[in-house]
Design a protein around this nucleic acid. Sequence first.
DNA 1: CAGTGGTCTAGACCACCTC
DNA 2: AGGTGGTCTAGACCACTGT
Lengths: 279, 279
Amino acid sequence: MDGDALAVRETQVTRPVAEVAHVHRPDETGLGRLESSIRLDRTSPVPLYFQIAVGIKDAIERGAFKAGQLLDTELRLADRLGVSRPTVRQAIQQLAQQGIVVRQRGVGTLVVTQRIERPVALTSLYDDLVASGCTPATTVLEIRELPANLDVATALSLTPEEPVLLVERLRLTDNAPLAVMRNYLPISLLAHDRLEAALEHSGLYDLLRRQGVEFHSADQVIGARKPTSREARLLETSRNGTVLTMTRTAFDRTGRPIEHGRHVYLAEQYSFTMKFVVP
Amino acid sequence: MDGDALAVRETQVTRPVAEVAHVHRPDETGLGRLESSIRLDRTSPVPLYFQIAVGIKDAIERGAFKAGQLLDTELRLADRLGVSRPTVRQAIQQLAQQGIVVRQRGVGTLVVTQRIERPVALTSLYDDLVASGCTPATTVLEIRELPANLDVATALSLTPEEPVLLVERLRLTDNAPLAVMRNYLPISLLAHDRLEAALEHSGLYDLLRRQGVEFHSADQVIGARKPTSREARLLETSRNGTVLTMTRTAFDRTGRPIEHGRHVYLAEQYSFTMKFVVP
DNA sequence: CAGTGGTCTAGACCACCTC
DNA sequence: AGGTGGTCTAGACCACTGT
C-alpha cells in the first residue's frame, strides 16, 4: 500500500511443530480430502507445478492441516494428480522454500505453518495502528525534477547533475504525522501525469508495478538519529525526539536501480518488522 | 562473528547491466575458460548440481565475467561437463535465485553481479569500523538461568516461569562500547560448559551452529528509543541519546524457536544494512 | 526392511527472442 | 529459422528414516 512494501512485510509467525519423532502418518494422509479440490488445467498457461503449489498452499491456509501433519508422498500425489513425480516435486519444493512445509528424507513432507496471530511483542506499532482501525493517509508534499546530488546519483548509478524525479510525501495515521518519505526515481520511469492524485491513494511501488516495473532486490539501511528542524516541524515533534531512518535502493532483475528512498519515521510510533528466511 | 549473523549481512551492490538488447554472444562464451576449472567429483557426497553452481559462482566472483556477459547455454554446459541438462539447470537456477545471474528465455543466462565496493552512503558504520581496522571485542556481562517472563516465554513458545538461559554481552569497538546484547535460549540447547570463554571469541550463532543447530528463519523488529539508565551507563552515553533496538526470534527448519535476542545499539555508531531479494 | 525424499538421466515439446 | 530457457515425462539409483 505504500513505499514500504519491500521493507515491512506482513509476516506470519512460524510455530513449533509437535515432536517430529512422534508424528504418525495416518491411514488417510492429508491430501486425501485435497485431491478432489486441486483441479489441474492442462490448457492453462499457468504451469502445472504452479497450479499444484497454489492448491496445496491454499489448502494449508484454509486450515486443512494441523501443524506437523504429513503431506501426501510425492509419488502418491503424482499418481493422484496424474502428473509425473518431478512436477509434483517442483511444486513442493516451492512451498519448502517459502517455509510452509519442511521436507525430511525418510520421513515425508511436514506442514509447518499454522495461522496464528502474531504475538503482540513482535508487532510493528504501525501495523497495530492499522489493525486497530486507524486510518492511514498520505499527503504529497512535493513532486519535481531536480539534478541528482552525489548520494542520489551514486545510488541510482547516474552521473551527478543528471535530473531525477523527487517525490516527497507525509504519511499520517489518524491525522497525526508518522513519517516523511523522500523518494528519488530516474525520470522516464514513471509517467508524471496525474501522479500527485494517484499517490494520495496508492503507494509508489504499486504505481511502478502497474507500469510494468519488476522489483527483484533492494539494499536497505536502517538507523536512528534526532530529526532535523524541518523533519521535526513536519512530524510535529521536538528536535530532541528520535526518528528511525530508512534508506533504500531498489533494483529490477537486471540490476538496474529503480528507486532510491530516504524515509524518516517517528520512533515512538513505528518499528520495522521483517522475516528472514535463510536460504 | 557475532549474534547478528542473521541480521546484518555482508552484501554486495547489484550494478546495472549494459543494455541487454545490445549484448552479443561472443564466439567463445564465458565458460570456455571455465570449463577446465570446474572439476566434478562423482564420488563426492556433494551433489553434482551443487559442485557446478559453486564452480560458476566462484568464476563470477573471481571476475571471469563482465556484467551482462552471457553464460554458456544449458545444453552446452551439460555437454562440456558431461552431465544431463536438468542437472546443469538445477545449478543455474540456484544462482538465479541468489540474484547472481538472470535468465531470459530466448536469450540466455546473463551475469549480473559485479564486485564493486559498496558506495559509502550505503555502508553500515559498524562494517566501516571493522573494515578500517578497528578491533571489535565482546565482554560477557552475565550468563545465568532464570525463569522466562511473558515476553520471552511467548517468543520461545515456552510457558512463563520455565527456565531459560540468559546471555548478556557488551560489544565494543576499539574499547568503546557499541551495543548491549541480551539473548535468551531454551536451556539444554547450549552446553554451558566454558560458555563464557567461548563467547568472548566467537559469536553465539557460531557456537549454536557448531552444536548442530540449524537456522532457517527469524522474525526481527528494529526500532529506536532513548536508553534506559543502565543501558546509558553501559554504553557510556547520555540518557538523552538515541539507541537502535533489535528484537529477534530465530527458528530452525521445523519452526522450533532457537533463540530470542534483545539488542541495543548506539545509534550514532551503528545501522542495519540488509539486502532483500523478492522471491 | 520398506518407504521417504534427494539426485540424476535422456529424452520431448513449447513459448519466446533474435536474426 | 534457429536457438534459448521453461515445462514435463518416465524411468533409475541412492541416503536416510522408521519399525
